[in-house]
Write a protein that binds this DNA or RNA. Structure first.
Lengths: 339, 339
DNA sequence: CTGAAAGCGCTTACAG
DNA sequence: CTGAAAGCGCTTACAG
């Protein structure tokens, strides 16, 4: 590689005619330093364009002021929202983030977690952590707090209750007169379709069905490859109990499902009603505007970050417990109608 | 913070009954080591779950094996594509990435660039770099190669020619019979609307107009806030030379523009033709499917990464020069029609 | 208020 | 093939 030259703290000390430790003190704003020596040092810092080495700093201080965030899929707009929520909260407390794009690939995610370990992140925020249990052990062992998203506890009415939205959506559909519905879920190599989250979603369906005395079918359609979506849908519509309403089981599923509906030339909501998962500018600008199950990912990011800060001893407990209940909700727009 | 415990190389050495330097050697696969001592060391490494400290490693070796990527807006799917292209190429050569979300905010971007400097990235990949010229100087001075995207040289037929797509799009529109068109561009705090890229896009329009002998208006509509989109469009349609075709000037603009069209209750393509910028699953699944100017961001990411590797002395020149010409293209789908 | 010294966890010549 | 030593650029008690 081309030789890079980096100014060191010693350079600054020499230029300012002081001892390196004094430079360190003004850098860290610690201890009293005489105004004029401080000024001299700051001038030298600027003049030499000095940028302290993070490596040296964290090696010496045993702190990295860094948190790792593992996102299963950066191309998912909901995850970006989540990330920004976390970033906002953490940066306010002087932490910076290492962001990792999981690319929906467990191997990639494993490699990145190892990198986080080597980078000595002080905390970790992960989503879909149920798929990573084994990989998170080293963090726990090393005493690094891990804050997992989407690990809600429906039975205990946990803080991240994600049933409200589905429940409202299905009540809405059954009230409209739908009988047979299909939920398209993302079946990933790294996750069982019947995750806890999914299971609770299905419970919501069951509850709404009972309430409306409906006996229709609930098709659960696992999709690995977006291209499978159209054929699966076609088969479903040709079979018994053909669904009149199609639900995206999670945020990844929305676009592929819409693509399939498009490919089959179905009108929305005349031929089929659609409930999307995850609100975004695209969902609102779609034609017709999509009825969605909306979840505040930004807030979830902030919440997890706050909890992490508490566990790191960098924030009072109150801040985190003030947050907590982030239910999802159903937004009716134009894609759902009487079958 | 809760105390974290990290295993050190010395711990491994002790456990394996060898000198630390020997452990270092097997870690780095350097120098000959006797198979049985290697085995003993590897066993100890695994048993203790040793993960070398990146800080210590890069401090001692003066290498970080790290490249910074500054994306103006992580919520932009095109940028994610770009990122993955770069990541793929760089990881193949043992580099890892520090990803930064610019959040469309110059202040954020400046802060992150400073962090990259402290992190001692060995290279930098940025997009929209024309807005950052001042901020990139420290990198250049330090001898850190910077690879800028979207800094094409239209006059010289440079490697990243982005005129072909616009030209094709406008020829298409004028051939259909459109006379007055409007280009919606993202006016950002950190960038002049008339960027080099935009200027060349306007040149494409002029050329297509001349070819078709059209004398109609070309409205250029700078939008800062998505909410401004609908009122601006309404005014435009009520005024003289009302456009019959609306073009998104860049990838950020597409969704806001569609939202505005939706809000005004305009039919696509009956009332207005739409040309979107940037292809994605959403664009293809839209109703009607959107005619788009498509650009291969993944390839662009790979190209920039390859060039960077050459400059870092980590790849032969041939690899990078084999790449280069990545023109954009126009994809006609259902959102453009006779006015 | 400032300096001198030891040490953080590695790598890398240099001996042997 | 392996060990002992110095050093990377900082921070942090400890003196003064």
């Amino acid at each position: 590689m081309a030789e890079t030259h980096h100014v060191t703290l010693a350079d600054v000390a020499r230029a300012a005619g002081v001892n390196p430790s004094t430079v360190s003190r003004v850098l860290n704003g610690r201890a009293p330093v005489r105004p004029d020596t401080r000024a001299r040092i700051e001038a030298a810092t600027r003049r030499l364009r000095y940028h302290p080495s993070r490596s040296a700093r964290s090696l010496a201080s045993a702190r990295t002021w860094t948190v790792g965030v593992l996102l299963p899929d950066l191309a998912n707009l909901m995850h970006t929202e989540f990330l920004r929520g976390a970033q906002r909260t953490l940066q306010a407390r002087n932490f910076s983030l290492f962001i990792c794009d999981g690319q929906l690939d467990p191997a990639v995610q494993e490699a990145e977690l190892t990198r986080f370990l080597e980078l000595r992140v002080e905390g970790l925020i992960v989503t879909r952590s149920f798929t990573l249990t084994g990989l998170l052990e080293p963090f726990v062992e090393a005493g690094i707090p891990v804050e997992p998203a989407e690990l809600f506890e429906p039975d205990e009415g946990g803080p991240r209750d994600r049933r409200a939205g589905s429940l409202a959506a299905f009540r809405h559909l059954y009230a409209l007169g739908h009988r047979d519905v299909a939920v398209f879920v993302h079946e990933r190599a790294d996750a069982p379709v019947r995750s806890r989250e999914m299971r609770s979603r299905l419970e919501s369906i069951a509850r709404a069905r009972d309430e409306h005395g409906v006996r229709g079918a609930v098709h659960v359609v696992p999709i690995g490859d977006p291209a499978d979506c159209a054929p699966r849908l076609r088969a479903l519509l040709a079979g018994d109990d053909a669904p009149t309403a199609l639900i995206a089981g999670n945020d990844w599923m929305t676009a592929p499902l819409l693509g399939a509906v498009q490919e089959l030339g179905l009108a929305i909501p005349e031929d089929v009603s659609i409930v999307a998962y995850g609100d975004s500018r695209w969902a609102a600008a779609y034609r017709p505007p999509l009825s969605v199950i909306r979840y505040d990912y930004h807030e979830e990011g902030e919440t997890l970050a706050s909890r992490l800060l508490v566990r790191l001893g960098e924030a009072a407990d109150a801040a985190a417990s003030a947050r907590g209940l982030v239910p999802d909700e159903f937004l009716e727009r134009g894609s759902t109608a009487v079958p």
